[in-house]
């Protein structure tokens, strides 16, 4: 498997997109830290951008890469290797390279300008979101053979998680505002990895992001070791669920 990942990585690194992505994140992060004034403010702006762009780039890059690697997978499938190995190598290759790009592009500026627990949470969240959205990308790619359709599905997924989901939930919360919704909201947050990541960073940010009784309640949940552990466990589930279902489809499909 390691060798396969090596070749996948090699293929991706040769592709200039990943370098462009790194530079893009790097410029963005440094720019935001300079504009933001305080490191916390920089982190907050960065969080917003990270949660918007990282899923988008991950899912689009993941999908196009999958379709572009069809030949590679075809070549490998006729060799004595397990299909799931090929699939996982592709997956790890893509998510690792995107994570490294993220780690350099955002991690280095964060370490320089705003080192600390919150920065670490931002990085972890970004890396998890990368893994999750590459998994979703692969799921979109194995569902259909048509590249245009696959990218369409991927974009829809991104649109759903980045925008529509929150709108729907806010609408539901508004409609059922008379009921106690603390726990329900917690669950609804966990059902969207982007929201989960955002909340995880916000609640550990030492600015007045979360407030009042409810804010304090959530902070007590997400601020505790257990809360953080559970949140990351849910993130892991968010990686595994789409990844394993995509693998299932991939193992049964014709190449």
């Amino acid at each position: 498997m390691n060798k396969l990942i090596k070749y996948v990585l090699y293929d991706i690194v040769r592709n200039k997109i990943i370098v462009a992505y790194t530079l893009f994140l790097l410029l963005l992060s440094i720019g935001l830290f300079h504009l933001g004034g305080s490191p916390d403010k920089g982190l907050l702006s960065l969080l917003n951008l990270v949660l918007l762009t990282v899923p988008l780039i991950s899912i689009v890059f993941g999908t196009t890469h999958f379709y572009n690697s069809y030949e590679f997978m075809e070549l490998l499938v006729s060799q004595p290797i397990k299909r799931s190995k090929i699939f996982l190598s592709e997956y790890l290759g893509v998510s690792l390279s995107l994570s490294v790009a993220f780690g350099i592009g955002v991690g280095v500026p964060v370490l320089l300008f705003a080192p600390g627990a919150t920065g670490l949470f931002l990085l972890l969240t970004g890396i998890f979101v990368t893994f999750i959205f590459v998994a979703l990308a692969f799921l979109a790619s194995v569902i259909t053979r048509d590249k245009a359709k696959g990218i369409g599905i991927a974009l829809l997924l991104w649109f759903y998680f980045a925008l529509i989901y929150d709108g729907l939930v806010l609408f539901v919360l508004y409609s059922f505002g008379d009921y106690p919704l603390e726990k329900a909201t917690l669950v609804l947050t966990a059902l969207n990895p982007v929201d989960l990541g955002r909340v995880l960073v916000l609640l550990n940010l030492d600015v007045s992001a979360m407030m009042g009784y409810t804010g304090a309640l959530y902070k007590s949940i997400f601020g505790s070791g257990w809360g953080i552990a559970i949140a990351f466990a849910v993130m892991v589930l968010w990686v595994l669920l789409p990844l394993l279902s995509a693998r299932r489809v991939f193992q049964k499909r014709d190449l």
Partner: peptide
């Protein structure tokens, strides 16, 4: 199964390879 493929050689109709790889690497 997959291990049996070590006894197989396959030459596809249109060989498609990762474009960025060199012959040596393939």
């Amino acid at each position: 199964k997959y291990a049996y493929r070590s006894q197989f050689g396959y030459m596809p109709q249109i060989g498609r390879y990762p474009e960025n790889m060199k012959i040596r690497q393939v």
